[in-house]
Design a protein around this nucleic acid. Sequence first.
DNA 1: TCCTAAATGATAACAATTACAATTTAATGA
DNA 2: TCATTAAATTGTAATTGTTATCATTTAGGA
Lengths: 138, 138
Amino acid sequence: MNTFSEKLREKKLKVTPQRLAIYSYLANSGAHPTVETIYNDIRADFPSMSIATVYKTVAALRDAGLVREFNISEDSNRYDAHMDEHAHIICTKCHCIEDYYGSFDMGEDICRMELASGFSIESRDMNFYGLCEKCRDK
Amino acid sequence: MNTFSEKLREKKLKVTPQRLAIYSYLANSGAHPTVETIYNDIRADFPSMSIATVYKTVAALRDAGLVREFNISEDSNRYDAHMDEHAHIICTKCHCIEDYYGSFDMGEDICRMELASGFSIESRDMNFYGLCEKCRDK
DNA sequence: TCCTAAATGATAACAATTACAATTTAATGA
DNA sequence: TCATTAAATTGTAATTGTTATCATTTAGGA
């Protein structure tokens, strides 16, 4: 129940070289790449792969809960295989994205929000915007 | 410096009937509409308006800081003229969006994050996902 | 090894958005 | 008030990101 292949089987998804390559690429990347980027970077090792496969794979993995899909008001979606809850910090100048795994002390606030809204909250996306160190120094 | 027209002038944007209509529609809507929806709803009162104008207007207003653009992993962007900081609560079943204006007690957490990341945080997007009251009752 | 459903690859179709060029209009100042 | 000019609007074409289609290939089980 631990390896990626096992997780695929658990979800009744076949284990294919393409899926392994895409997931491995995502898992080793901290860059939150787009489909285009994934495709270009994997092409070298995998010249036969179609970009359609990349689209279908990230969608399948997203539906299986193995990757996270998000969009920061850009043209295309970004993907992230790091599923522990974490926030994204996005530079408004160079558009780099940094992960932040620290916790936020907002349990009570969420209770209040659930009470006020009638929703039962299951997950959240937290995106922070500002200038990264490099851009600020310029 | 208070009315929408004054804000436009301040940003060196011309005051046009189309801009007034689109902003007024957004300001009076709690629905976080897409360009398509804005266009369709305004068409009745404004048959000559082009959808290209709606696209350009929301982009101009977004750049001027008068509306907020966001995307919740759907096909098209959504727009919101309510600029006070607030969170969005999104139903994972019916995809309705509710605003939450309550505050979150995370000042210290953000300081810690700025320290750890080197970013200077200026704004944030908080999206919560769950089931709305209606969908949960079914 | 064979069988079958699922996955892949190539490409066409589609939908959201942007670019373009001609026309109209808001704002400025004489 | 009118003329001027830069900006905005329109309608449409082009572009881009994504999905659908379908023929071919392949993974996984019998």
